[in-house]
Design a protein around this nucleic acid. Structure first.
Lengths: 346, 346
DNA sequence: GAGAAAAAGTGTACCGGTTTACTTCTTTTT
DNA sequence: AAAAAGAAGTAAACCGGTACACTTTTTCTC
């Protein structure tokens, strides 16, 4: 079996304490003893058990990232990858590892319960979610990404309402009046009464405001909202369904994630539609491949890596016992060539 | 302070053991006692400390993935993302979390030393690496990806030599004789005497065999090998350098990773060269975006997600105390339109 | 209703380290 | 040379759970 500190102490003829000193505070003991202990350490291939150490030091050296979906799904979305990269950046500096926590048995709260982390970051989790309560009980400092700014939680996000308003305004200005919105389903099933994810709701509010200025609303004829899964497949599926209908097609599709928009691209390709002018498509996020797509995708840029990095930095701050403030990052409308004026059917 | 099991026991008027039963094996005690204990648990917001539990159960519920580079760098390579997705798949099934372990202070061994994992997966780590020894000392079961098949370690990989042979053979058959190979630098600096990564060495052997059949060798005039960093930037940098030279340019560039090949694409774009016929470019890996690139990239397909999934499944097997076998997955040469016969300069 | 069996609950050792308070021995100060 | 200060080392408590062996209480069987 793996040797323990006791084994080392016995073989070196010293106390456990001395072994501990040799490993963590060599100045505390004589050079002679130090050498003797270390010789035994080398001989028995002793490596201290980090878990046991943790029991007293109460520091694990790991940050957690609580995913609302399985890892396989989540990493299909480059935007999530960007956020992870941002978190990773901070982990590097703080000499921490990064623990990805996928839902266990479909429940994100179980993942949080048994997480071995010093602090963690959630994404898309609202203040009313049970996991928030649990984290508080466990006294684990955490920061939410794309959550909500409340008294008791620290959040990092963007102004989704304003960003959505800007995007739809530009689409409306092009002349589009038949618009389909691909809104994101909530990833976890913990709140079954919700139709859309937290950010989707906020963006819908922005869309509503933009529509209002043209005398329209989310319920106006021609405007449609479809819940989709946040993935390439989700975009393909919804768009296929949309294009196969009898009724008149929209002239523009607004996806709430670039990856969904790229799914729409694919569905259009299969259907033989050109983007544009047959259909204008816009996304949200500005993932790295959005600019390189054919055609380049109009989207709302939000700084994914920065979001992750800021959130992680705030967690580190909390861990150090300092106060942390909410952070609202900038977005920018990036108009590329996937959106033009609607094709006039004669 | 956060309540402990002792606090619960005291307040409920029972022993610590009973509390433990209430939480883990309710059938062991009477309903009446169970209710009383759970009431106190709820009242004091008690959540068991998973670290303490671990000391006796010796199970952490996490798999580790030891990265040879910072997370930010690694996740820029979609191929790594694919592998992580594969590992994630297995984690899901086993109700495990996934701990990403980036080098600490540039040293991968330090990451391994303090990792809180039940088992782990390395990538690109050879049998002579110090980390292998450490993992054995710590008695942590592990599987290597793209490592080496030895008596004492389990490896998941592909036949790099054969794959490289096939790729270069097809390039030579097209008529190319001036070929630049972009080989990968080892990511970690632990073995400074090495020029290339483990897989690069094996692929070079395959290249050498293919060249041999045409009466050439790796040292023949016209054949050049350049060490590059495995990233988009690495590809851009090396290719820029290559194209800016006075001397005659190669007609084909073989990158040992698709992401590097895509970097070469970008450098060509800036230089106003068309791919092909000015330059043929091929990659390795077949990342998802390789097929969608312009032009679609000729490459060697290797199953990234499967690699991760198989490796993780083997670790789980080892954890269960079973034997695990090496696994060599299939590769396939995928010829797309980035490679043609060399452009004849008149 | 006596004896056996099952159920319910407890005390204590243990996991593998860290930390505190204390002892012993050596060196320095006056 | 005595007192004070410092160095080196140790025993035992502690972190917060789990697991084993054991006792006590209840239920069942004949």
């Amino acid at each position: 079996m793996r040797p323990t500190m006791k084994d080392i102490a016995k073989k070196a003829g010293v106390s456990k304490t001395t072994v501990s000193f040799a490993l963590n505070d060599p100045g505390r003991i004589s050079v002679k003893t130090y050498n003797r202990v270390m010789a035994v350490v080398a001989e028995l291939d002793y490596v201290p058990n980090p878990v046991a150490r943790t029991l007293t030091t109460k520091r694990l050296g790991s940050l957690g990232f609580l995913l609302p979906q399985p890892i396989t799904e989540a990493l299909k979305n480059p935007y999530i990858c960007e956020i992870i990269r941002g978190i990773g950046e901070v982990c590097e500096k703080g000499e921490l590892s990064l623990t990805i926590l996928p839902p266990i048995r479909g429940r994100i709260i179980d993942a949080a319960r048994q997480a071995f982390v010093d602090g963690l970051i959630t994404i898309g989790v609202g203040p009313d979610h049970e996991v928030i309560e649990l984290l508080n009980k466990r006294h684990i400092p955490f920061v939410t990404i794309d959550g909500a700014e409340t008294e008791t939680t620290v959040n990092v996000g963007v102004n989704d309402e304003a960003a959505a308003y800007g995007l739809l305004s530009s689409i409306l200005a092009l002349g589009h009046r038949k618009i389909t919105i691909l809104a994101l389903r909530p990833e976890t099933l913990s709140l079954p009464e919700k139709r859309f994810s937290l950010v989707s709701d906020r963006r819908l509010a922005g869309f509503a405001r933009a529509l209002g200025e043209t005398g329209l609303g989310l319920n106006s004829p021609g405007i449609e909202i479809i819940p989709v899964e946040c993935s390439l497949e989700g975009g393909i599926f919804a768009t296929n369904e949309l294009l196969s209908r009898r009724q008149e097609r929209p002239t523009a599709v607004l996806a709430m994630a670039d990856i969904v928009a790229l799914g729409a691209y694919e569905a259009c390709r299969s259907a033989g539609l050109s983007i544009p002018p047959d259909l204008s498509i816009a996304g949200f996020d500005d993932i790295p491949m959005a600019a390189g797509a054919v055609p380049p995708l109009t989207t709302v840029h939000q700084p994914g890596r920065e979001k992750g990095a800021v959130a992680a930095a705030l967690v580190v701050k909390l861990l150090a016992g300092n106060e942390a403030q909410h952070c609202c990052l900038e977005t920018e409308l990036v108009v590329r060539s996937s959106t033009t004026a609607p094709f006039s059917r004669i």
